[in-house]
């Protein structure tokens, strides 16, 4: 069936099966492969996108359900090619990623979190992070990066 989904401000129309997961639509239909898939059962958080501004698992929604909603992915964060936004820059500065696979989902979760809570405590950051699994970093540098971004007024 035809579906029209707006991702990062651009409307994409495709003919898809109703069962196509939003994560697969984003990655393989429109080619935005920054959103990663780690479990397809809603636990790891790698596929976190913003759904009308709120963080959600792209693996737990069907693409057909996204029609009429505003979907944002990691590719929307940097305002210009080859640049980083303040949160991304804080991640690099703090060495907040190793393999980088979980990173896009974490950036999207933290983007929404900082929008609501621009001056969080470490404990608040850790709570907000707890729905995203990272296997490489032990989270400490991610926490540092979010606090740094907040301090810089990201």
């Amino acid at each position: 069936m035809k579906v029209r989904v707006t991702v990062n401000g651009v409307a994409h129309e495709r003919d898809v099966e109703p069962r196509l997961l939003l994560s697969d639509f984003i990655r393989h239909e429109i080619g935005l492969t920054g959103t990663h898939v780690g479990c397809e059962h809603g636990v790891c958080g790698a596929c976190t996108i913003l759904w009308d501004g709120a963080p959600a698992r792209a693996c737990l929604a069907f693409a057909v359900q996204a029609e009429g909603h505003d979907i944002r992915t990691v590719e929307s964060l940097a305002q210009a090619p080859a640049r980083l936004n303040a949160l991304q820059q804080a991640f690099q500065d703090s060495h907040a990623l190793q393999c980088g696979y979980c990173t896009p989902g974490i950036l999207m979760t933290m983007t929404a979190f900082l929008a609501e809570n621009p001056k969080p405590t470490e404990d608040e950051v850790r709570h907000a992070l707890s729905g995203n699994l990272c296997r490489c970093t032990g989270y400490q540098h991610i926490v540092d990066a979010v606090l740094l971004a907040a301090e810089r007024g990201a």
């Binding site: 809603g42 958080g45 976190t48 759904w51 709120a54 963080p55 959600a56 698992r57 737990l60 929604a61 979760t109 929404a112 979190f113 907000a128 707890s130 729905g131 995203n132």
Partner: peptide, 9 residues
């Protein structure tokens, strides 16, 4: 209940 990303939907 789960995490914010789950509670969104």
């Amino acid at each position: 209940v789960a995490h914010p990303q789950i509670r969104t939907r």
